[in-house]
Design a protein around this nucleic acid. Structure first.
Lengths: 146, 146
DNA sequence: ATACCTGCAAATGTTTTGCGACTAA
DNA sequence: TTAGTCGCAAAACATTTGCAGGTAT
């Protein structure tokens, strides 16, 4: 399996784009984050390494990283874009705690099967799908009770 | 079953809010739309009846209508808020055509069951959930082939 | 050398807010 | 009468874009 960096640099070459220092730094930091960083989280992290970098470059580069198939853009309805690592990371869904913001990733073969059935029933060809369950996580539920 | 207007006016009274002409007009027009209007669609429709109304009033009022349990806020990832009628309208999900923008509503008991199972497995108490399947609808698929 | 990129600032588009005038009860 | 609303304009955000100067190949 090729490394994410290899995939990225090959993608860039194929598209006639350059493998700049900024793009490498942003990819590095993004791949290290294990969660679902908002664009501003990434901006802050990248600035620690390279304070000169601009927010627009983060936006532009994350777009390219998505196009290269290494990231997936997420919308948690909090008014800003989030990104998650797609590299070696199968399709999944999210449980989102409304109290503490914790995000739990879930996968379900049964769920995928039902989605396929529903799509088929309506003659619909699936490109992508997203399911989010908002609620209260175990930890916050316990706190509420006390 | 009470009418939507009754529910709305009772909600307003309970909250110490007024049942203004604008609120009534916006609710009327919103209830008549059978789809998932964006805020600007509503703005245009309402302005036909009452050209003096301001966009801020639409935003503020749709928020109140949601709070009253008569509308549900939707995010189709197109950069603007949409609303759908929640009155006498059970929980459901959406198939969204990426070509023509058509939205098909789907319900599935099996799906709800799986969501409950997944939440339970993680000690999660569900508040609300949303599933969206993006793809190509039957009609657009046919057009592509020709 | 020469595309391509970057950082900055300005522009954009959506949504929210402050406020003086107005209105429902 | 008077709290609550409205319309407007300005502010607040997130995101995108134009451009002059810098960089990778």
């Amino acid at each position: 399996m090729e490394s994410a960096k290899t995939i990225f640099s090959q993608y860039l070459r194929k598209k006639g784009m350059l493998y700049s220092k900024q793009r490498e730094q942003i990819l590095d930091i993004f791949l290290k984050t294990e969660k679902h960083p908002a664009i501003n989280n990434l901006y802050d992290l990248v600035r620690k390494k390279n304070p000169k970098i601009g927010l627009a470059t983060i936006y532009r580069t994350m777009e390219v990283i998505c196009d290269a198939g290494l990231a997936r853009k997420l919308d948690f309805g909090d008014g800003t874009k989030h990104y998650e690592n797609k590299y070696k990371h199968p399709h999944h869904h999210h449980l989102i705690c409304l109290k503490c913001g914790k995000i739990i990733e879930i996968t379900s073969g049964k769920l995928e099967e039902i989605q396929r059935q529903l799509a088929k029933k309506h003659g619909f060809t699936i490109s992508r799908d997203t399911m989010k369950i908002f609620g209260i996580c175990k930890t916050c539920r316990r706190k509420e009770k006390s």
